[in-house]
Design a protein around this nucleic acid. Structure first.
Lengths: 201, 201
DNA sequence: CGGCCGATTGACCGATCGGTAAACCAAGGG
DNA sequence: CCCTTGGTTTACCGATCGGTCAATCGGCCG
């Protein structure tokens, strides 16, 4: 089989399994089994387990960042562009539902696993705070950092906690209607923040 | 040694280790080692590893919930009481910094581990939404469930992501000044939401 | 002192982990 | 036709996991 085919099968299997059972739960043996491939092949195509996970993450990194940048480069005033970025952020998460859980699992695991996601999160963080730098005061409780933490938490938190609170939520939190309601809520929050920021100027 | 003493040492060690390295990383052997205790003793005092983790969680459950309820039972109008609950929520997390990471690690691990935190999260979720039921519309993007998800994500997300974004944050996100700025930010967000809800009535 | 009992210990179990080494297989080129 | 080469497989390694068990310790009571 062609080199690329096998690698892709392994990557896909690893992606799904990591989101389901976390870093430690996703053993190389189980990944290989799900990919329909011999276990030793995983080490042939990806040197080690950690390299495999980094490869899985790398697939998301570029897509995630470029989606946000593209959304920000639309025409319109600051408010419109911010809404556009929030839209893109939310859309990316709902189209790649294993991604937030994967990142979460790595952060919760070990220091080494945490280091894997750190670089991507840092550049995302820096880019977002630069984007907001013009419209928020510097330092204090209204610093751009605060709003990054708040809104990224609103989106990623929803997806990661969804399976846990599904019982209490009533409807499935990941059903299309629930998702659109959540997105609408986030937009409402953005407007609430921007209105109040303008009023306080 | 008295039964209680040893149990307490094991619980404390397990608590810290779970927050550091997650469920799978916190092996029974390492827990025992940190507690200065023989490994078999862990199984003597707590039947199994999962029972041990449940015992760790149980210590937080009651404290967490009663802290919120107590905060809500203060005098004043709805806005004041909500601020009071947010205060208590934030304070509890900053005083038990291993707690949010512990919960996060369990959610990210396996379905069984997820079930451990589910009960507590559900009752917390139900209580909060009841608390907000009077001041938010029913259903849609302004449903109480949305605001629960939003504000709990704002607080817990900050603490769980703190070690990851510490480099980019500049100051230590867990330093007292940073924490008070974050708390102020959350209060600012509460007011922004309540103002807009009132304006839309 | 003798015996009892709860707490503690060290030795051990089968299972599974990430990773390695060598053999094997099919296709392609000289 | 043989030999090389990249992909694949089988068998295996040491380490570590959660958990068990019988032996042992140390007070306390009669």
């Amino acid at each position: 089989m062609a080199r690329h085919e096998t690698s892709e099968k392994i990557l896909t299997a690893a992606d799904a399994l990591l989101a389901e059972v976390g870093y430690d739960g996703a053993s190389v043996g189980r990944v290989a089994e799900r990919a329909g491939v011999n276990k030793a092949l995983v080490f042939y195509h990806f040197e080690s387990k950690s390299k495999l996970v980094e490869a899985v993450l790398a697939r998301y990194y570029e897509a995630h960042q470029s989606a946000l940048r593209q959304a920000y480069d639309t025409k319109g005033d600051a408010r419109l562009r911010i809404h556009s970025v929030v839209d893109a952020y939310f859309k990316f998460m709902s189209e790649h539902r294993t991604y937030p859980r994967l990142v979460l699992g790595l952060i919760a695991a070990s220091d080494e696993a945490r280091a894997m996601v750190q670089d991507n999160l840092l550049s995302l963080f820096r880019w977002t705070t630069e984007m907001l730098a013009d419209i928020t005061p510097n330092g204090g409780p209204l610093d751009a950092r605060q709003f990054y933490s708040t809104f990224s938490g609103m989106v990623t938190g929803y997806f990661t906690y969804a399976p846990v609170i599904a019982d209490a939520w009533g409807d499935d939190p990941l059903a299309p209607e629930s998702l659109s309601a959540r997105l609408e809520h986030v937009h409402w929050m953005v407007d609430a923040v921007l209105d109040r920021l303008e009023a306080e100027r």
